[in-house]
Amino acid sequence: MTNGKKALITGIKGFTGHYMAAELSAAGYEVYGFGSSPALNELRYTQVDLMDSKQVKSAVEAINPNVVVHLAAIAFVGHANPNAFYDVNLLGTRNLLTALADLTNKPEAVLIASSANVYGNNTPGKLSETIAANPANDYAVSKLAMEYMANLFSDKLPIIITRPFNYTGIGQAENFLIPKIVNHFRARQEIIELGNIDVWRDFSDVRFLVKSYAALISSSSFGHTVNVASGEMHSLREVIKICEELTEHSIHIEVNPQFVRPNEIKELCGDVTLLNNLTGNKLQKVPLRETLKWMLEEKN
Rank of each mutant, 00 (worst) to 15 (best):
G4A: 10
I9D: 01
G11Q: 03
H18L: 14
H18D: 14
A21G: 08
A22S: 13
A22F: 03
G28I: 06
Y29L: 05
Y32H: 14
F34K: 02
G35P: 03
A39D: 03
Q47W: 01
L50W: 02
V56Y: 01
K57N: 11
S58V: 08
S58D: 09
A59S: 14
N64M: 11
N64K: 13
V67K: 01
V67N: 03
A72S: 13
I74E: 11
F76R: 13
V77K: 13
V77C: 13
P82G: 06
F85H: 04
T93P: 02
R94H: 12
R94N: 11
L96F: 13
A101Q: 04
T104E: 08
A109N: 13
I112W: 00
A116S: 15
G120W: 04
N121L: 14
L127A: 02
E129G: 09
T130R: 14
I131A: 09
N137Q: 11
Y139Q: 09
V141S: 03
V141M: 06
S142I: 01
K143G: 04
L144F: 12
M146D: 02
E147A: 05
M149H: 06
F153R: 07
K156H: 07
L157C: 03
I159H: 02
I159E: 01
I160P: 01
T162A: 08
T162W: 00
F165V: 11
N166D: 12
E174P: 12
F176G: 08
I178Y: 05
I178W: 07
K180I: 04
H184D: 07
F185N: 07
R188K: 15
L194W: 08
F203T: 08
D205A: 07
D205Q: 07
F208R: 10
K211N: 15
A214Y: 10
L216S: 05
I217K: 02
S220H: 15
F222I: 09
T225A: 07
V228C: 03
S230W: 02
S230E: 07
E232W: 02
R237W: 05
E238T: 11
I240Y: 04
K241T: 14
E245R: 10
T247C: 12
I251A: 05
I253R: 07
Q258P: 00
R261S: 15
N263Y: 15
G270D: 03
V272W: 00
T273G: 10
L275E: 00
G280Q: 02
K285C: 02
P287C: 06
L288H: 02
R289M: 12
